[in-house]
């Protein structure tokens, strides 16, 4: 027994080294597949506060850009509103509402709820990029919710603490987003391949479709994370490699990740019900 202790004491540095490395590798593997409450990441209270102070300083220098972005966003909203109002004037079904018309699609009755939030930490140049938002479980944010900006898809909530949340960015090597080509509803999957933060790949578009440069890519809405029809980007290159049964399509993302300052977290009140139903039916969860 004494020899054993002597042995451990003699090689204590090496044993400690091996122990710590095993711990680190375990943390890497676990964090990659982990979703839930935040303990040790940028959403934890103290770290979040530091990042918030930092961004309140750096945001000051970008106020002009942020302002013009919000103004443009507002203009787009007003345009949409005017169009709706005109359509309403033309539409006469409102008069029938009490008599003949019955709502046939219950999904229409529960729209998505958007929570606005400031981005307090953002990375775009790493292999796996994350954002930190100054919004948390106190505001009703839960892991797995989608995150969008005014002009497109941003990512998905990974962990939450009381006042902060981390987001797996679209610019993450393991992030998959279910998308479709807007003009003909062909399903595909958006995946970021690393490198340029303005470009992603659209995969699984079969060869009988004719995608053209300039086509808009939107979310499919088949997964519960994002509403249908949120813009992802536009096709910037289409290639057909000889040994593949799918196109290799390059998509230019509509969101400028380098300029993100405000985003919206998408809450879908019916999500839980739908996921439970699909799970009970034995349908495996689709990629995001």
């Amino acid at each position: 027994m004494r020899n054993l202790f002597a042995f451990i004491y003699r090689f204590r540095a090496f044993l400690l080294f091996v122990l710590l490395e095993i711990l680190c590798v375990y943390m890497v593997v676990r964090y990659n597949t982990y979703q839930g409450a935040a303990f040790f990441n940028s959403a934890s209270t103290y770290v979040g506060r530091v990042l918030e102070v930092q961004s309140s300083v750096t945001d000051y220098f970008r106020l002009a850009t942020i302002n013009s972005m919000l103004a443009r966003d507002n203009a787009a909203m007003r345009e949409e509103l005017l169009r709706q109002k005109l359509a309403e004037q033309v539409d006469s079904t409102a008069e029938l509402s009490g008599m003949l018309y019955a709502a046939s699609d219950s999904a229409m009755a529960y729209p998505y709820i958007l929570h606005a939030s400031r981005v307090i930490n953002n990375s775009i140049r790493r292999t796996n990029n994350y954002l930190t938002l100054s919004i948390g479980s106190a505001d009703g944010i839960k892991p797995g919710m989608g995150v969008i900006a005014a002009n497109g898809v941003v990512g998905r909530i990974k962990t939450v603490s009381e006042h902060y949340a981390t987001v797996t960015s679209l610019l993450h090597s393991q992030m998959l987003i279910s998308a479709k080509i807007k003009k003909d509803n062909t399903m595909g999957t958006i995946k970021w391949t690393g490198g340029d933060y303005r470009k992603a790949m659209l995969d699984y578009i079969p060869l009988h479709i004719k995608p053209v440069v300039g086509d808009t890519i939107v979310t499919s809405g088949f997964a519960t994370v994002f509403p249908e029809g949120i813009v992802v980007g536009t096709i910037s290159a289409v290639e057909q490699e000889p040994d593949r049964s799918f196109y290799t399509i390059e998509v230019e993302l509509s969101v400028d990740f380098a300029q993100l300052s405000y985003v919206y977290v998408v809450e879908s009140p019916l999500r839980e019900e739908r996921e439970n139903l699909e799970n009970n039916a034995g349908i495996l969860p689709h990629d995001q």
Partner: peptide, 30 residues
Amino acid sequence: LLLGFAVGFSVDIFYDTMGIHAGASVLLAY
């Protein structure tokens, strides 16, 4: 070794890269 783990872990928390910088720093320390 312990200091290496601590400093790497602190950076990991801010970078959301659990374990990567901690592991590298422990290796460097060793």
